[in-house]
């Protein structure tokens, strides 16, 4: 605990505490709609944080993270639907499978010196390959989708992941806080420094004796494992899975928008990004409905334009300038 909080300025600690209390109290105040948006925010904050380990810390651009979400979701859901396996045991299986997948892709890519754009395309290719595979896998529901039985119940049961939205909210909140704490510890660890050395200059890092291959493999494995858990949550929260949706390139891009908009390589950036973008997309839908515009596309044109503005004018994301403004930039991990 001490090493977790060590070195954080008091102001930042206070801000964190305020945010924590607000998040803990939110379900008591929020209505069903706001709660559903908040759950989505937390979900994207969590998977964004997981993605950030690979890209933000170790500098490996993955554009295929929907692969781990999808496989994680399918493994746990299939175990549950077909064999009645408890979701948390299913989650362990999902994490194991996704870690293995991440390691396999890592071995293929890093052994052969595939980096940058090539690596990114390789990750997309694996996600697309898997999508088409699941699209034709009859046992797993193929393109028709896989559905989890939904039963209405008053009580929430965390052990079987069945219950009210508020329960899912707290589960996701716990994941998000856990991932944040883990990333904070990782950044302060030897491995975290190795990652950043590799990110800045792989050749120089290797010359200093850092085992770049091993460090990159660790990043991929950790990132895949954490993302898989996000997939498990996705499966049991939404209760339906379609390969066309869960494995799509669009999903992968959604995952990485949060950390990039928030501030890549920072701890708070992925969370801030998710909490900005998700409500933005949702309030745009609301605004369009209010204005009586139901033409498809309007909302996303605006969304794209917002993205463009942020990318052009805030190349390091929105968090670093906000942090500076609030005097919270004690964070030493900022990029650039």
């Amino acid at each position: 605990m001490r090493s977790l909080l060590e070195g954080i300025p008091r102001r930042s600690l206070a801000a964190l505490a305020v945010a924590g209390v607000a998040l803990l109290a939110a379900p008591a105040i929020a209505d069903a709609y706001v709660l559903s948006v908040l759950i989505l925010c937390l979900y994207f904050a969590y998977v964004g944080q997981a993605w950030n380990i690979m890209m933000g810390f170790a500098g490996q651009l993955s554009l295929g993270h929907s692969l781990y979400v999808g496989v994680g979701a399918y493994v746990s859901a299939l175990l549950f639907v077909k064999f009645g396996v408890n979701p948390w045991i299913g989650a362990l299986a999902a994490i194991a499978v996704c870690t293995a997948l991440g390691l396999a892709i890592g071995v293929l890519a890093f052994r052969f010196g595939i980096a940058g754009v090539y690596f990114a395309i390789l990750t997309i290719a694996f996600a697309e390959f898997t999508r088409i595979g699941f699209d034709h896998w009859q046992w797993a529901g193929a393109s028709g989708g896989l559905f989890l039985p939904v039963e209405y119940r008053e009580t929430s049961d965390v052990l079987t992941l069945r219950g009210s939205p508020a329960m899912f909210y707290y589960v996701m909140l716990a994941f998000t806080v856990g991932a944040l704490a883990l990333c904070r510890l990782l950044l302060a660890s030897r491995l975290g420094y190795y990652w950043r050395a590799i990110r800045e200059d792989a050749a120089a890092a290797e010359a200093l004796g850092i085992n770049a291959f091993g460090c990159k493999m660790a990043a991929v494995a950790l990132s895949a494992a954490l993302t898989a858990l996000g997939g498990v949550f996705f499966a049991f929260y939404y209760n339906n899975l379609f390969p066309e949706q869960i494995f799509s390139i669009g999903r992968s891009i959604e995952i990485i928008l949060g950390p990039i908009i928030g501030g890549i390589g920072t701890l708070i950036g992925p969370i801030v990004g998710a909490f900005l973008l998700t409500p933005l997309a949702d309030s745009l839908s609301e605004l369009m409905a209010w204005l009586g515009i139901d033409t498809p596309g309007v909302k996303h044109v605006f969304y794209g334009a917002c993205l463009l503005v942020v990318v052009v004018f805030l190349p390091h994301g929105v968090w670093p300038p906000i942090a500076r403004l609030l005097g919270l930039d004690g964070e030493r991990t900022r990029r650039g």
Binding site: P296, H300, L307, P315
Partner: peptide
């Protein structure tokens, strides 16, 4: 042009933003 000297992933994000706008403008 201003993005030529920036890191790869920001170039990528820029083009993704352009792509999102193009796809949806066409849809519109």
């Amino acid at each position: 042009n201003p993005f030529i000297v920036r890191p790869e992933h920001t170039q990528f994000m820029l083009m993704v933003a352009v792509a999102i706008i193009l796809v949806n403008a066409q849809l519109l």
